[in-house]
Design a protein around this nucleic acid. Structure first.
Length: 237
DNA sequence: CCATTAAACACCC
DNA sequence: GGGTGTTTAATGG
């Protein structure tokens, strides 16, 4: 799955438990589901590992079983543009697979992560056979479009607290990231990386959001209390 | 000025 | 050991 063999663990079939957390498996017929599981592989990526790289042919549809990835792009001057974090439950890369193109962004592990991959052939086969699968993919694309439109709005307001709030809310998206639930495992360091702020400033923002009773700061993570208001947060004043 | 951040430190899980 | 809270000095709009 991960194209570069820097893995701690070789790719292996998914466990029952892991399959239970893959949302689109539930919509498939028993036959299609069996076919899919047969062509699912799971591996572990350590921090810095690239799950996919720009320019590589698309060979898998990827899903995050556990951990945290980030989607980024390299600019001409060597800097990185981070687009979004990818938390547990996310499935991505379907756009590239649909167009049968090469990947247009890098996906890198921020922490030790368990990543699943469905072979491109099987992905295409499911598209041909299964209407529920098509519906799932279509819904996924639609929800993600909403995410990116929201991301543009985030960049407009450069109020740090609001940016942290909106970015957090995006990561708690229940459809795109069903594995997150109401407790997102993310360090303040990682969040700073994704939002583009320092660790202290993220901590300051989190405390403001906690004071507003929108989240609760947990050790090594954030618990959402009111997702709707978190999404709409504006700083007092 | 004021906000932000890097660096350094002391806790604590 | 790593994540977190905090202080201090440097930086930049």
């Amino acid at each position: 799955m991960v194209e570069r063999p820097q893995l701690r663990e070789r790719a292996r079939p998914p466990t029952e438990r892991e399959c239970a957390d893959i949302p689109w498996l539930k919509v498939l017929s028993p036959e299609d589901r069996a076919d899919a599981v047969d062509h699912l592989m799971v591996s572990v990526a350590v921090p810095g590992d690239r799950v996919c790289r720009i320019g590589r042919p698309s060979t898998f549809w990827f899903g995050v079983i556990d951990g945290l990835l980030k989607m980024s792009n390299d600019t001409s001057d060597g800097a990185q543009i981070t687009y979004t974090g990818i938390p547990p439950g996310a499935w991505f890369g379907e756009g590239t697979l649909l167009k049968r193109e090469t990947y247009r962004y890098n996906i890198e592990a921020l922490r030790r992560s368990t990543v699943a991959g469905l072979t491109s052939d099987t992905f295409q086969r499911l598209l041909d056979r299964s209407i529920p699968f098509n519906r799932f993919v279509m819904n996924q694309l639609n929800e993600r479009l909403g995410q990116f439109i929201a991301a543009r709005e985030i960049d407009r307001h450069n109020q740090p607290d609001a940016r942290v709030a909106r970015n957090l809310a995006a990561l708690f998206h229940p459809v795109l990231y069903p594995g997150v639930g109401d407790l997102l495992r993310i360090t303040q360091q990682e969040l700073g990386y994704l939002v583009g702020l320092s660790r202290q400033r993220v901590n300051q923002a989190l405390n403001a959001l906690q004071q507003a009773k929108l989240i609760r700061i947990d050790y090594g993570g954030v618990r959402v209390l009111d997702l709707d208001r978190l999404r709409r947060y504006t700083p007092p004043g």
